[in-house]
Amino acid sequence: MAGAFIPAALTMVRRGTSRLFPVIRLAAADLARNARHVAGRIAVVLMSTAFAVTVIVVAAAESERDRVEYRP
């Protein structure tokens, strides 16, 4: 599913950049032109970010639980 969504999303991003700075327009055009090659890399970055956020949330929850259960 993500394989079909990401190239379509990159194409939509390219269409919405007409009023932005030229550098951003060029980057968006390059991403849209190479959408099939970039889609896998974007999926990896999204999964890595989700994993990092999960680790941080679990660590914060365990830390808070330890703080509440602490008995001096």
Rank of each mutant, 00 (worst) to 15 (best):
G3M: 10
M47K: 06
R41N: 08
A4C: 10
V13Y: 07
A27F: 14
T11N: 05
L10F: 00
I6F: 09
S18N: 13
E69W: 10
I6L: 14
A4P: 05
L31D: 12
V53K: 02
I42W: 06
P7W: 00
R33H: 09
R15S: 13
A29T: 07
R19F: 15
S48M: 11
G40R: 02
A27D: 13
L26E: 14
R67C: 01
H37L: 05
R65Q: 13
L26P: 05
R65S: 13
P22Y: 00
L20F: 10
V68Q: 06
V44K: 00
R25F: 09
G16C: 07
V38H: 00
N34I: 01
A28Y: 00
L20N: 06
M1D: 11
F21T: 07
M12Y: 03
E69A: 14
R36L: 01
F51T: 09
V55R: 11
A29D: 04
L46W: 02
V23P: 04
E69H: 11
V44I: 07
P7H: 03
F51R: 08
N34P: 02
V23E: 14
R65I: 09
A2S: 05
V23T: 11
M1W: 07
A9L: 12
I24S: 11
L46F: 08
D30N: 00
T49R: 14
V68Y: 07
A43M: 15
I42M: 08
A60W: 08
F5A: 15
A32Y: 02
R36K: 04
A32T: 08
V58R: 15
S63P: 01
V23Y: 04
A27H: 08
S48Y: 06
